[in-house]
Design a protein around this nucleic acid. Structure first.
Lengths: 195, 195, 195, 195
DNA sequence: CATGAATGAGCTTTCATTCAT
DNA sequence: AATGAATGAAAGCTCATTCAT
């Protein structure tokens, strides 16, 4: 009862790493088992299927992510501070679960079509509402520029953050907070020098 | 011998569309053949293998892209104008070959490890040099901010542009030039209102 | 278009023979393929799955059987003549499709629970109605004994006929009509000598 | 050492029930264990293998059956009374060990080919001799009809009895003796009304 | 040019069985 | 006696590829 959940976690971490490195489809169960030091069939003692491993990786990642996002969104911050907090939390999540984020990034679009992974589409929508709402509030408050297409801006900021999962390596020279600061500086103020 | 190249193009366009929609690994040769109105085996009259289709899609895309990039880089423009031109050409390429760009985006990282696709790594490096060089020139000329990590800035701009291939649909309401203008405005000046 | 259906038939006959000999579950796809002189995977060019082979074997058998039963039941025969005709047709069917009958005998009970094989249950019910109706007509007409439990009698006659599929070998010394005659003589008049 | 035999019996009864319901091959060891309230591996404390469970079920069933058959065959009854006693004992056995009989019915044919289950073939042969001998005695004594093929008659009576295991449910409205009486009436005197 | 049929390697999954605890 | 975790062989199935026609 105490050891079992830990073993699952270990195995899921291993699986996530392999999925992230080679893609879900290109990853064989044998490869995951090799990496975990067991035989392919043995994985089925712990999990129903390869797909259920993916499911558990993604859903537990999104669960954790939304716990933090919800805390931010419920904190009553101004629009700029909300954006800053969301981006910072995102980079922290990339730092904690890089593999899960990378898988999410690569696979969520086509997975969302399957009933089993419909929660990915739900999450996507909730995400969009949170960002669009914050951007609109910011424009109304004259904190953000009014001359930009709001949906384009949403995509710009959203992608800008998450793609980082594809190159970020935890334990590198920059802390997630430092990266968040630099990203926010670019996104908010641009890369051009002020004259 | 004269009609062949056109047929190849048609088939490659079909293949690219399917690769982009479902991922290279998840795409079966049979699916491509279905979409092209023939049987799976028949594709092998035109191409050596599934991989060679991918190869041809990516290399012809990169060939065209670099022809345009090289023109920009050799035109003697200032750093800011160079960035603007590169981004604009990138969005035009997304408009012309959306599928190829999406495939490149999703698959290039792990493909680059194979000898056959080493040109992807070469291109990546050439790309990086062009951008880093331009950014450095811009900082020296006080056109770009000097307080940002230059490699982080490079990744930021690079990703910002290419991820658009994942949602862009040719023939939508914005022309590639219009999207480029908005993106550049965000990247260069930020989304925060100037006070 | 002309060769394909024949090939399917050949393969299905092979499969039916193996299913009948070893049971559906104990039969491997490889075994069927061996017997057909091809590799296991090659069967999937012709059929969707092992189960669909079973399905096609059983449904085409029942289709043919009911065509003949319906002809008998619609011919306006008396109860005794109806029983005689049904039994004779049954033995002819065993002669023509021994393997299919043997599979039906062994597997239909648990298969009928699956939606895909629900037609087995339907057929079973139609079968029961035909026999029970004929027996009742016969009892009313004083052609059959009135002192027997009718459902028990139904099972007795039904089983008596179909179990023959488990030992019958086409091309043996008795024609199906001869076997039918002997079976009917036993079922109708008993094995005890008349005193 | 003293309680063990009872536990074995319980477990074997459970196993027999599952084998009878789903077939030996389609039954997983895990399923049996579930039904017995333990884990799959735990069964191996009690039994060597799945096959040895089957073996024990079938051999103990046949042991008991032959004890009774031998008593009948040694009692010096006339041919008709012998048949009546054998059929009655058979239905009693179905009543006592329905699951074992059903398994025997479904699996004995192909099991008999394996050395371990050769006793099934032996029993079959002994069975055949007893019935054929009794029928011949009866024909000689003009108790049974002489105009029937004797082997066909044997199969007819044999199958007729045992197939009943496939639909019989202990505790139903008919006692085994009552069912035996009705079956014997049909087999001996036929279902046709005497004119 | 394209088809129809097959190959063969490899995949996910199942399952009887083992064994340290 | 029973558990929990693993093994290893084999199963059904997929798919890129080949090739005679």
């Amino acid at each position: 009862m105490t050891a079992a959940p830990e073993r699952r976690r270990e195995l899921l971490d291993t699986a996530a790493e392999v999925f992230a490195a080679h893609g879900y489809n290109a990853t064989t169960v044998r490869r995951i088992a090799d990496e975990a030091g067991m035989l392919a069939g043995s994985l089925y003692y712990h999990f129903d299927s390869k797909e259920s491993m993916l499911d558990e990786i993604l859903s537990s990642f999104l669960g954790e992510l939304w716990a933090r996002y919800d805390a931010v969104l419920g904190a009553g911050l101004g629009p700029r501070e909300t954006i800053e907090a969301l981006v910072t939390e995102s980079f922290r999540e990339i730092d904690r679960h890089r593999a899960a984020v990378a898988i999410y990034q690569k696979e969520s679009r086509h997975l969302a079509a399957q009933p089993r992974f419909h929660y990915l589409a739900d999450s996507q929508q909730k995400f969009e509402q949170a960002w669009l709402g914050t951007l609109e509030r910011g424009i109304a408050a004259r904190v953000f520029r009014a001359d930009l297409d709001i949906r384009l801006t949403y995509r710009f900021v959203r992608d800008t953050v998450w793609v980082a999962a594809s190159w970020y390596r935890p334990g590198g020279q920059h802390s997630p907070e430092e990266i968040a600061r630099q990203y926010l500086s670019m996104v908010l103020d641009g890369i051009a020098a002020r004259t």
